[in-house]
C-alpha cells in the first residue's frame, strides 16, 4: 500500500516495549527497536508531528501516500546506535478513551501531545500522564510535547507550565511545531537518548 515505511524485519526480536538483545537473533545494543504510542486530544497535531518526523512533510492534506495510523522510522544516533521507532497512533475521540490501555500496553515510549493554544488539551495531557503512571509499563519513557509552538500570538499554555509539570513527573518536555518542523527531530532524538540500553552481557 506504499504508506508504511516499515520493511520486512525478519531479524527483530520480541514484540513489546523496548526490544533488545533478549534473543540471539534479535536487535542488539546497537540496534534498538521501540514501540512508541501517541496520546492526546484530537487536533493537537499528533499526525502532523509523525508525518513531519517520518517524511519531512507537514501538510496532512498533501498528496502523499503515507500510512495513516502505523508508521515506523529509524534514526541513527551519534554513538552509531540506531533506533527504530514503531509509532502507534491512537484514536483521540472521547468515545475511544477507554481503549487506550490496549495500545500503550508494552510500549517503551509514550509521547503525550497537547496544543499550546488549548488549555483543555493540556488538561487532557495531564490525564494521560496520570493514567500511564498508574497503568503503563514500568520504565516507560514519557515525553510531554506542547505542539503548535508557531502560534505564539494564540498561546494559552505558558512554557513554564509545561516545564514545571514535566519536571514534577520526571518526564522529558519539549515544545514543537509540526508546521515549521521546529524541534521535531530533537523530540525523537532526545527520546532515543533516554531509552534504557540493554546491558552488555
Amino acid at each position: 500500500m506504499g504508506c508504511s515505511s516499515s520493511l520486512p524485519d525478519r531479524s527483530s526480536g520480541r514484540s513489546t516495549g523496548l526490544n533488545n538483545a533478549d534473543n540471539s537473533e534479535g536487535p542488539d545494543a546497537k540496534n534498538l527497536r521501540v514501540k512508541l504510542v501517541l496520546l492526546g486530544d484530537s487536533g493537537v497535531g499528533k499526525s502532523c508531528i509523525v508525518l513531519r518526523f517520518v517524511r519531512g512533510q507537514f501538510d496532512p492534506t498533501s498528496k502523499v501516500t503515507v500510512g495513516a495510523s502505523f508508521l515506523s522510522q529509524t534514526i541513527a544516533l551519534q554513538d552509531s546506535t540506531t533506533v527504530k521507532f514503531e509509532i502507534w497512533d491512537t484514536a483521540g475521540q472521547e468515545r475511544y478513551a477507554a481503549l487506550a490501555p490496549l495500545y500503550y500496553r508494552g510500549a517503551g515510549v509514550a509521547v503525550i501531545v497537547y496544543d499550546i493554544t488549548s488549555p483543555e488539551s493540556f488538561t487532557k495531557a495531564q490525564y494521560w500522564v496520570k493514567e500511564l503512571q498508574k497503568h503503563g509499563s514500568p520504565g516507560i519513557v514519557m515525553a510531554l510535547v506542547g505542539n503548535k509552538a508557531d502560534l505564539l500570538e494564540k498561546r494559552e499554555v505558558a512554557v513554564q507550565d509545561g516545564v514545571d509539570y514535566a519536571e514534577k513527573n520526571g518526564m522529558f518536555f519539549i515544545e514543537t511545531s509540526a508546521k515549521t518542523a521546529d524541534n521535531i527531530n530533537q523530540l525523537f532524538e532526545e527520546i532515543a537518548k533516554r531509552l534504557p540500553r540493554p546491558s552488555p552481557s
Partner: peptide
Amino acid sequence: SISEDHVLGGADDFLP
C-alpha cells in the same frame, strides 16, 4: 485523502 481532499485522520479515521 488523495482524491477527496480528506485530511488524513490516522487512527481517528481508521478505528471507527
